[in-house]
Write a protein that binds this DNA or RNA. Structure first.
Lengths: 352, 352
DNA sequence: TGTTAGCACTCGTTCTCCCCGAGTGCTAAT
DNA sequence: ATTAGCACTCGGGGAGAACGAGTGCTAACA
């Protein structure tokens, strides 16, 4: 057991006090003093004793003071310890459980809609910001491809994936390419590329299709260029945000100068890269500076993953202040990612 | 000429002073005093004279004071007058013109992309928030409809409109409906509904299609229910935002308590209704409380429209503080909406 | 009669000073 | 080992004072 290792360094009482202090600070957002801890239930010793203990905890780096004679605040090391060893799962009230299940109860046949709803639930129940990465587009497989002509020189190319996701783009069609050519090409593509992952489209196109096309259609070069262009997946990630403004209500972000960089980061692409750099198995927590990304030094990031049909992976993330209600968020994010996986696979089940 | 009517009430000097004061306040965001006006170029009279004039303008309701001995600030009536009678068009620098044209210079074949880029340009060059309403989905005409089967019980219904917009939704297909039925149905729909505006789909379905279906396919009732369900356009508006966070940099929104309601309104649906309530011809400005919507009493809204092929109308809007750089925004929004129309119709031209 | 210099007055802002209270560390008694 | 007591620290809040940007008014002037 890990606790034995811990006991060598921290006494039971110190563990208890650290836990109390973090719990207190998480709700009050203000430095916690010995007196207020002493008043808490289950505390049998005096403020003076607590002060001694807290001084030790501070010396070990688990706590900090904002100024010489202030109460204590958890350090990042303190949060890390709390999260690793002291996190006790929290029970949600029946009311809340009911509400969550209810939100999922509508008929949500579309994967996107399901993810969007999940993000909303997560942000509303945590009061922080939820970010979800959809299943990577590039991992999806091509189910059907289609060209719809809009007018003499333009058409819409439509790509449907196995998950039911639809990509479309408008393309210019040179005059030299005739309608029956297009039909022929689309048929060839559907034939050869069925269930090919999107990230392979380019290479397959060059390897297999180019030869077939050369034999079957006129103006082969132009068509190849066109296809190469339009079968490039430009934005390989689907991103869903919810509750971006929840951060504004947090006491640590009352200052506008803190809000602007934060919101800028939340809207930017770097946060996505940060999310994708999280390990892809199970639940992970990054506290403050553990995030490599500038601008969220005062935030914590909790992520987990969900899967569709045991394959396509997506990420569920909650971002909030370092002083986060970790137990609650962990419970919620875990629950929601399981519900999401469950729901998605329920759809998937129809496949077999 | 309107100016004659004005002259009966406001002297030339008063007009001049009002204009100076608004221009000054727009950049400084602070009450303007007589001394600072006197220092401006072209002002030949003394602070005392200016004070007298300003007092008159205040009496007439064009100016306000924040407190008894402060400088003056334009009232809503003052802004209104300024906007109606004193707005002098502003020239953009060659640099800026170049940048704008450059931003449009990439190949932007997709309507959506074009609108998105326009919003971005507008918000970046004004430093306010841009909101664009896409051409109303309901006005578009059906170009092609298609069903792609995903698995035994689900398929994706794809609707392509004449503008190249693609709508799609996942539908559950009852087992009783066979593949050849689906093909038959889709053929009938494409045949009967070609170039029918989307808002008519429902009624046409009931009037014309239901009879044909009854004769040609099994399980007619179920299919009708399915079609009725999936041919409903759920979200009839496409909305593009850009620069929502620009508001945070404005001095009037330094207070977090002001930011939260503002951002909430910007994210909400009411603002869309407000936008749609603007007259649909030419450029319009609503100042402060002229907006019926709560939460943007301190903002002004400038809108204009753009058109696609002389038909589908969309809205371009900029929202900023009442103390807005009106001349610049008017010039920019006008220019950008023209460029947008131009670009869209360039695509359209290929049609003929 | 319109303009302007001069002056008393107003009022928000900023700075200082002071006090309060929450909290600490240390010491000595239990 | 625990705790009561005490001196000390420091941020926050409130009361004044000084400041300055601005006004309105009056009287003099062209």
């Amino acid at each position: 057991m890990l606790t034995e290792v811990i006991h060598k360094m921290l006494t039971d009482r110190q563990l208890f006090l650290l836990q109390l202090l973090v719990n207190d600070y998480v709700v009050s957002a203000e430095p916690v003093g010995s007196r207020s801890i002493a008043k808490r239930e289950g505390v049998t010793f005096s403020p003076a004793t607590i002060r001694n203990e807290l001084a030790d905890l501070e010396e070990m780096g688990y706590l900090e003071k904002t100024h010489l004679s202030s109460g204590r605040v958890p350090s990042e090391k303190g949060y890390r310890f709390y999260v690793d060893h002291l996190l006790s799962p929290v029970m949600l009230s029946d009311d809340e459980l009911g509400n969550i299940r209810h939100a999922y109860h509508e008929r949500l046949s579309e994967t996107e809609e399901l993810i969007r709803v999940t993000a909303k639930i997560l942000s509303e129940f945590t009061n922080y910001t939820a970010i979800m990465l959809g299943p990577e587009l590039l991992e999806m497989k091509l189910k059907h491809i289609q060209m719809v002509k809009l007018n003499q020189s333009q058409g819409v190319l439509i790509i449907v994936t196995d998950t039911g996701h639809v990509e479309n783009r408008v393309v210019s069609i040179p005059k030299s390419i005739k309608a029956d050519d297009i039909e022929k090409i689309v048929n060839i593509l559907n034939d050869k590329l069925n269930m090919v992952p999107l990230y392979q489209l380019q290479s397959r196109l060059n390897a297999e299709i180019s030869g077939v096309l050369r034999e079957n259609v006129r103006d082969y070069k132009r068509i190849m260029a066109l296809l190469q262009d339009s079968l490039t997946i430009s934005d390989p990630e689907q991103i869903f945000y919810s509750g971006k403004n929840n951060m504004l209500a947090q006491p640590e972000f009352q200052d506008v100068d803190k809000i602007i960089p934060l919101l800028d980061v939340l809207e930017g692409k770097e946060i996505i890269r940060e999310l994708m750099s999280m390990p892809s198995d199970g639940l992970h927590i990054r506290i403050g500076r553990e995030n490599k990304l500038n601008g969220i030094e005062d935030c914590s990031l909790i992520t987990t993953t969900y899967s569709v049909g045991g394959e396509h992976l997506g990420t569920v993330a909650v971002i909030g202040p370092k002083r986060m209600a970790y137990p609650r968020v962990v419970t919620l994010i875990d629950m929601v990612s399981k519900l999401l996986t469950e729901n998605l696979n329920q759809q998937e089940r129809h496949d077999r």
